[in-house]
Design a protein around this nucleic acid. Structure first.
Lengths: 109, 109
DNA sequence: AAATTAAATCGTAATATTGCAATATTATGG
DNA sequence: CCATAATATTGCAATATTACGATTTAATTT
């Protein structure tokens, strides 16, 4: 036990859950907000920005890269990160579809 | 170590991360989709629906209740669950605001 | 009151995540 | 080539999450 039983659920359900998991940490939210705000590639200053150790920051960046939501490009000795606009749009749309309006007129609670 | 360093981040960043965490499991996505689909209070059949043990299902329901996104009402010997429309709307809006459109025209990667 | 039913809680095991120091890697400049 | 700088990876400890059997709680029915 301890591991999520992914096989019980649909691909879509697992996809949404995994997307949520990718942003389910304040450091990763902070990274994404910073990249969106800067509206450009950001090289280097993410470690200073967060206040976490370099290794930890690098790990969070890796998770965001694995999720596809950011891209990294080597720029000389440092690495530049930016939002992957295409995947970002997918996230936007999938969450938007998931959180469609609910009709709770039939609800008893 | 092991615990998230919430104090490094803003309340808003922690809030978004916690909301994402609440839905970062396929069983919880399945529960929410089922409640939305049924468009009414659902009593009892959630355990049969998921395929997880009763205790596990109950635990997931508790997390969703803690996050405020669902409500439960005792109905005789069983418990009826439904979407908390107000909180649902908040989630919808917060995620929608977070995933606002990005301009990556200045991006190098 | 006893039996039944549904759900919550407890205890515990397995696994995942978070965080950081230490080390490795990679590119640049001297 | 050697030193430096920036980032990645490794290894490990602390904590969190997931899952389930067993038990408890709470309401209903007999």
């Amino acid at each position: 036990m301890g591991a999520t039983k992914s096989d019980l659920f649909t691909k879509q359900q697992n996809d949404i859950a995994n997307m949520a998991k990718a942003i389910a940490h304040p450091a990763r939210i902070a990274i994404l907000q910073y990249l969106v705000k800067k509206n450009a590639c950001v090289c280097g200053d993410l470690v200073d920005e967060l206040g976490l150790a370099q290794a930890t920051t690098s790990q969070h960046l890796k998770e965001l890269k694995n999720a596809g939501i950011i891209k990294g490009a080597i720029e000389g000795v440092s690495v530049c990160y930016c939002i992957n606009a295409k995947v970002w749009k997918q996230y936007k749309e999938l969450f938007s579809a998931f959180f469609k309006d609910v009709d709770n007129s039939n609800s008893c609670c």
